[in-house]
Design a protein around this nucleic acid. Sequence first.
RNA 1: GAGCCGCUAGCUCAGUCGGUAGAGCAUCUCACUUUUAAUGAGGUGGCCCCGGGUUCGAGUCCCGGGCGGCUCACCA
Length: 491
Amino acid sequence: MEDRSSEFHQRLGKLAELKSLGVEPYPNGFKPDHTCADVQKKFGEATKEALTATPERVSIAGRVMALRDFGKASFIHVQDRSGRLQAYVKKDVLSTDDFAVFGKCDVGDIIGICGPVFRTRTNELTVEAREFKLLCKGLNPLPEKWHGLKDVEARYRQRYLDLMVNPEVKDVFVKRADAVRFIRDFLVGRDYVEVETPMLHPVAGGAAAKPFTTHHNALDMELYMRIAPELYLKRLLVAGFERVFEINRNFRNEGTSTQHNPEFTMLEFYQAYATFEDLMDLTEEMISSLVFRVKGSMKMNYQGTPLDFTPPWTRISVKEAVLKFSNAGEDVFVDKDAALSFAKGLGLHVPEGLSHGKVIIEIFEKVAEPMFIQPTFVTHYPIEVSPLARKNAEDQSVVDRFELLVAGREIANAFSELNDPLDQKERFLKQIEEKAHGDLEAHPMDEDYVKALEYGMPPAAGEGIGIDRLVMLLTDSPSIRDVILFPLLRR
RNA sequence: GAGCCGCUAGCUCAGUCGGUAGAGCAUCUCACUUUUAAUGAGGUGGCCCCGGGUUCGAGUCCCGGGCGGCUCACCA
């Protein structure tokens, strides 16, 4: 407590004075009967005269966000979860004791007020304090009322302050909660069951990513924080759930950026007897109706770029996209060496050991991915980069998969699921080969998953949607940290 | 991992050519019983991110480090 602000010490002094007056500075039990918004809603239409003629008493509680002191009378702004409301504290209608307590109050304290609602000379709806109760003495001063808290580092490290004084920040997280609830209702309404699968995995599967490792002491067992729930959810298809989804955290031991946080929220859902084409239809419906719900329109702006989510959305294959947005020839898709030399011509760093499909994806990401601003389904990814997806019936070099791209970014990834246990085992073995060739993120073998498939998994399609990135779009947030309450920072 | 930018009072920010560290808000004292960033008068408040160097003298220049942001790379 040595190097605290002088105001901290001044407030400690007030705290001591309150205690010496016999006032408990942190009491419990005050019950507000209205929120600030309740009062606005209930009396917003009432005239000054009507309120004076039949005064109605309310009690509210919240944090003091502004205080204008006139000596024997003061105006304060009280902020609760619903918003702000003005209160008027007048010496001659309060008890001497209550007024003395008010005298020790500062901006940032949490208080409770009971009294009639009236309108001031300027017609502002206001609660006149007949009773005033201190509910929590704040010791640290709040950020400035006018400029708020701007310092980005402080906003992340002390998010509670950011949320307290910057209302638009709280709006983002309320919208996030709304979006998640909408998605949950959407899937539940289609007979999906919400489940929770392990976060601690003995094998880090279901995606190509570097996992966090951890250790279980009692079992003396190496474990991985999950990088994806996919393989567990598909075990549940084997089990007979047929329609399951999970909204939960994934962890990836990789760098951070405006689009990457080491822990992020993923929706994955799986539907038996559906194909990836069915999921394109479902995704169109889910996302467009979500956009409409949050934005009130199918059209919106993201960082100044107009986006239109009105279905149907463009569907284009990886191959078509590469041919369209570059001068690559067909040979790039037939001959690995042609692909390699074309990639090098683009200035891409492509080691010889890379698989043909991986080279094609490198090319696609360079030349085509940034071009897809409006919602677009990109389909038919190379089989080498999709070890869990079902092969396309006509072209065995690609799988029945799509990614949804919006604003040049991946929002969703889905495919018809591979349910042939022998094929799956071969794909895992191929991945292990690629790991030997230096692909650090090749998928590891999961014998237990193969065993589950051997019992029979119904034909199905599954999809993953990155909730954080989706919420970035919905809230026009430039950084993923803007949609994560407590983003990871160095100590 | 590389480049660029930032870090000064509780908050938001100035700080010239290297010459005694500033403003607004907040806070404290006084006045004020209908204000809206209330007003008026007067005060308090500093590890200028940290460490080294150059210099008579460093918030300022140089070197190293820390934390953060952006871009690129890596990565879905």
